[in-house]
């Protein structure tokens, strides 16, 4: 082994400059092509437009669906707009970025809906397991990069976002689009070069050891501060919050504390965990509905929603 040769400061500066240049070029390239990285990111970039439409539309009832891929797969948007037995005109809007939960939904609502009011709007949140609890794992990078402003952090304290490590990831996400999109970039690259990448990753993600989507279920001592804050925001913009428990193959229970929270805040719960006609073969995997399941789910949802979207109900809200 030899000792390092005597290096010149100029050389080391050039090394650092070149490394930084590569990172900056990568950042620029990603920023220019971000919406093409994945369908999910493309959807995230349409959220402001969806929110604008939802606020401007003057139908009898605007249903703003807030959720993740469970809700996205379960709601048949065109179908829901034809299913209005009470002859009210209904418009549906889906904001359902993958892998999101209560902290993301809180920020999305505050960023895009808080300043607008639309008294005929319902915000319908689809959830499963512990996705409404503060203890559900958060993705601070995504929160910082896509959904939250720095002023939202206090309201999400209960989720652990203010802890050093999480907060620093939040900051990294808000600064670098490469960092916030790393999962999408990684998937694109590895899907190209690694055989069976997508299929095997999906299997690995579903295994109990690596599952993040289902983390947080069954945890004791759940709290619902972020959810309560979100309800407060929705109320302050004159909208009505409705929650729906989503179906998955392996059923789950709803925390008693959460049920008490719904009752005390006057939030209707549409329990759709066991829709009669939905069979196991209507799931693409263990949690996402296929097209047929989606159609049946949507019909069941509208039926359950009828009491809330009738004219009488709208009048009481007004």
């Amino acid at each position: 082994m030899s000792a390092p040769k005597v290096v010149s400061t100029r050389e080391e500066k050039l090394v650092i400059l070149l490394v930084l240049s590569v990172l900056v070029l990568l950042e620029i390239a990603i920023r220019l092509n971000e919406d093409r990285l994945s369908g999910n990111i493309s959807h995230i970039y349409t959220i402001p437009e969806i929110a604008r439409q939802a606020s401007d539309t003057t139908s009898d009832a605007n249903l703003i669906f807030l959720g993740n891929s469970l809700t996205n797969n379960a709601i048949d948007k065109p179908h829901i707009e034809t299913l209005n037995s009470s002859k009210n005109s209904i418009k549906a809007f889906k904001i359902t970025p993958d892998g999101t939960a209560i902290s993301d939904w809180y920020c999305i609502y505050n960023q895009y809906f808080l300043e607008t009011t639309n008294t005929s709007s319902f915000v319908i949140i689809g959830f499963a397991w512990g996705q409404l609890s503060d203890q559900f794992p958060i993705n601070p990078t995504r929160l910082g990069g896509f959904f939250c402003q720095i002023e939202d952090i206090d309201a999400l304290e209960a989720t652990g976002l203010t802890r050093h490590q999480q907060f620093l990831r939040f900051l990294a996400g808000s600064v670098s689009h490469v960092y916030v999109n790393r999962e999408a970039i990684r998937n694109r690259v590895l899907d190209t070069v690694v055989p069976y990448y997508k299929e095997t990753t999906q299997v690995l993600n579903r295994s109990p050891q690596n599952n993040t989507e289902m983390d947080g279920r069954g945890k004791s001592m759940s709290t619902y501060t972020s959810f309560t804050n979100l309800n407060q925001s929705i109320k302050s913009s004159n909208r009505q919050l409705v929650v729906m428990a989503m179906p998955v193959i392996d059923n789950y229970s709803i925390d008693a504390e959460l049920l008490d929270t719904f009752t005390s805040l006057g939030i209707p719960l549409l329990d759709l965990r066991n829709v009669e006609k939905i069979e196991k073969n209507m799931f693409l995997d263990s949690i996402h509905l296929n097209a047929e399941g989606s159609r049946i789910f949507t019909e069941a949802l509208v039926e359950k929603l009828q009491p809330y979207i009738s004219n009488d109900r709208l009048n009481t809200l007004n």
């Binding site: 090394v15 070149l18 490394v19 990172l23 990568l26 490469v178 990684r186």
Partner: peptide, 16 residues
């Protein structure tokens, strides 16, 4: 050296 470090940096930033 700069090329090797750039590779490390990109991999660390994108592929953690």
């Amino acid at each position: 050296r700069a090329s090797i470090y750039s590779y490390f940096a990109v991999m660390l930033w994108v592929f953690p």
